[in-house]
């Protein structure tokens, strides 16, 4: 959420309030009652909570555009969301919607072996294993020499993962594609009624987004109080 806020404010947006429900919140109404006087809402929930949030948000009569990170609109939630989630815009490192051979193979495998429509949790872990696999191959199948294996891992660069091409920066953080999706009914596959349709992609996104590395690292660590709120 800190990353969203910093980028949003950098581009001239104003964040007027931040509310922090606990991770699992049966009823969001005490928080929803405090949402007013804004243009949009960014939710950062995970697990089953986005479903309850979107539902209760709609039933509280709130109409502001909602945006979310990867966990707040994950593809595995598609079968549980109701129509109230239509219009939710999210940014995610993996999207079920991605048309590539690697993703098609992955989704087919998930359906066949686990009878489950995957979301980012499955896809990212699968990609992690692809990286490990590639690292092991590069190190000649030998992981006992830790330094050699780590060096091999760091230089892994893959193009055939379900999430698209990935590689690592000099701090060993991943560089990959970020997909911006809008939730709707168009294009739904695998028997789903709702679908996260990709409306924009950003390629080669690093952990620093558009900041120069030095500037980014000079920021304080993100917390509930940093970045501070802005009044416009």
């Amino acid at each position: 959420m800190g990353g969203f806020q910093a980028s949003f404010q950098k581009d001239g947006g104003c964040v007027v309030n931040k509310l922090w429900p606990p991770l699992v919140t049966p009823d969001y109404t005490p928080y929803l009652a405090q949402i007013a006087g804004c243009d949009g809402v960014c939710q950062g929930f995970a697990g089953s909570n986005p479903i309850r949030f979107m539902k209760q948000y709609a039933s509280a009569g709130l109409k502001y555009q909602v945006i979310a990170g990867e966990a707040g609109a994950d593809d595995f939630l598609l079968k549980s969301f109701g129509d109230e989630a239509v219009g939710l815009v999210s940014a995610a490192p993996y999207t079920l919607d991605l048309e590539s051979d690697a993703n098609a193979r992955f989704v087919d495998g998930m359906l066949k072996n686990y009878d489950a429509i995957p979301g980012q949790y499955a896809a990212l872990l699968y990609s992690n294993c692809q990286v490990l696999d590639a690292g092991l191959k590069a190190a000649g199948g030998e992981a006992r020499d830790r330094d050699k294996f780590m060096a091999a891992l760091k230089s892994v660069s893959l193009t055939d993962t379900p999430r698209g091409p990935i590689k690592f920066d000099h701090l060993n953080n991943v560089i990959g594609t970020i997909y911006i999706r809008r939730l709707g009914k168009e294009g739904a596959k695998y028997g789903l009624k709702l679908w996260n349709k990709t409306i924009h992609t950003y390629e080669n996104v690093s952990q620093f987004w558009t900041w120069p590395e030095k500037d980014f690292l000079a920021h304080p660590v993100y917390s509930r109080d940093y970045p501070p709120l802005t009044r416009c």
Binding site: G47, S48, I51, R52, K55, S59, A60, G61, F76, L77, K79, S80, F81, G82
Partner: peptide
């Protein structure tokens, strides 16, 4: 492990408006 969402029963999906406030009918 996936959460299951249950539809609001038909006819109770609307709102009750009292002055400036809006209450979900089901609640």
């Amino acid at each position: 492990g996936d959460p299951i969402s249950v539809e609001t029963p038909s006819g109770l999906g609307g709102f009750l408006r009292v002055g400036p406030a809006v209450f979900p009918l089901y609640r």
